[in-house]
């Protein structure tokens, strides 16, 4: 059985899943839906708040609350995604939900190794592609997209194929 790791970022969730399923014709594949709680914002908050004199207690309390909030938002997103996928896929392989904490790009690659993924699906950039960069040269001939550092890292380090979906209408 083939395993597909679908990394959710939350932006345009329904459209993303719709497009992902539309391109996958592996009816028997096992789908692993992944959400990563990014710990960098939490740690940055912890550092800033922990450095304030006499605020350590409140800082730790707030950091725990923020972690719980991030985790809860991710769980809701995963449930929503599972419902969307289940409705779209009448038959076929299992759907599993995964939640990890850490730096998203690292965790996506680590999860791909862990589940033995044959394909990673992730969304990239918003639509439409921006204007072509100014100036002469080949770069100026085409509209320009910016890939997030997360996408770039996954593309560079993935242990399997990566399906990169650009949001918005294709043309």
């Amino acid at each position: 059985m083939r395993r597909i790791l679908v990394a959710l970022s939350g932006l345009m969730l329904a459209e993303f899943l719709d497009r992902a399923l539309g391109q996958l014709h592996w009816q028997d594949a096992e789908l692993h839906l992944l959400h990563v709680v990014d710990t960098r914002p939490l740690a940055e908050f912890g550092l800033a708040a922990g450095a304030l004199p006499a605020r350590t207690g409140r800082a730790a309390e707030q950091m725990r609350a923020m972690g719980a909030l991030g985790g809860e938002a991710g769980r809701r997103m995963l449930e929503e995604a599972e419902a969307l996928v289940a409705a779209r896929r009448a038959a076929g392989g299992a759907i599993r939900r995964l939640q990890r904490t850490g730096v998203p790009e690292h965790e996506i690659v680590a999860a791909a190794y862990e589940v033995g993924a044959d394909l990673i699906v992730l969304g990239a950039a918003e639509e439409p592609a921006g204007p072509a960069p100014p100036g002469p040269g080949p770069r100026a001939r085409f509209p320009h997209r910016r890939l997030t550092p997360t996408v770039r890292f996954v593309v560079d380090h993935a242990p399997c194929d990566v399906l990169l979906l650009y949001a918005g209408p294709r043309g």
């Binding site: 970022s9 939350g10 932006l11 969730l13 990014d38 960098r40 914002p41 940055e44 908050f45 800033a48 708040a49 304030l52 605020r55 409140r58 800082a59 707030q62 609350a65 923020m66 909030l69 991030g70 938002a73 997103m77 997030t148």
Partner: peptide
Amino acid sequence: VIVLTPIVYATVVALRIDPLPYLY
């Protein structure tokens, strides 16, 4: 830091966008 930052975090998490720039 202590009050506004967690509120901004909650706001951007609800918007489902990358919270990192806003938190920084």
